[in-house]
Measured scan of single mutants.
Amino acid sequence: GATAVSEWTEYKTADGKTYYYNNRTLESTFEKPQELK
């Protein structure tokens, strides 16, 4: 079976905060997504 690849990509803001962006739902969040835990 195919492994589900996380759609979340980790980015940093200009002031160094980490956030996560989902390229399928176009959602962004500062909290670590469930799929990455």
Rank of each mutant, 00 (worst) to 15 (best):
G1E: 14
G1H: 15
G1D: 12
G1A: 13
A2S: 13
A2P: 14
T3N: 14
T3V: 12
T3A: 13
A4Q: 13
A4K: 11
V5C: 15
V5R: 10
V5I: 13
V5D: 11
S6Y: 08
E7F: 06
E7R: 04
E7A: 07
E7K: 03
E7T: 05
W8S: 01
W8A: 00
W8N: 00
T9L: 09
T9M: 11
T9P: 01
E10K: 04
Y11C: 15
Y11H: 15
Y11W: 07
Y11I: 13
Y11N: 06
Y11Q: 10
K12M: 11
K12S: 07
K12E: 07
K12W: 07
T13N: 09
T13V: 02
T13G: 08
A14D: 09
D15G: 06
D15W: 04
G16E: 03
G16Q: 02
G16S: 02
K17N: 07
K17T: 10
K17D: 08
T18H: 06
T18I: 14
T18Y: 09
Y19G: 05
Y19S: 03
Y20P: 02
Y20I: 00
Y20A: 00
Y20T: 00
Y20G: 00
N22Y: 00
N22H: 02
N22K: 00
N23K: 10
N23F: 09
R24M: 12
R24T: 12
R24K: 14
R24Y: 12
T25A: 01
T25K: 01
T25F: 01
L26F: 15
L26K: 15
L26Y: 12
L26N: 15
L26R: 14
E27V: 07
E27H: 04
E27A: 05
E27Q: 10
E27M: 07
S28L: 15
S28F: 15
T29M: 05
T29A: 04
T29S: 09
T29Q: 08
F30K: 04
F30H: 06
E31R: 04
E31T: 11
E31A: 07
E31S: 09
K32T: 08
K32W: 03
K32I: 11
K32F: 06
K32Y: 05
K32N: 06
P33S: 02
P33H: 02
Q34D: 15
Q34A: 14
Q34R: 10
E35T: 04
L36Y: 12
L36E: 08
K37S: 13
K37R: 13
K37V: 15
K37Q: 15
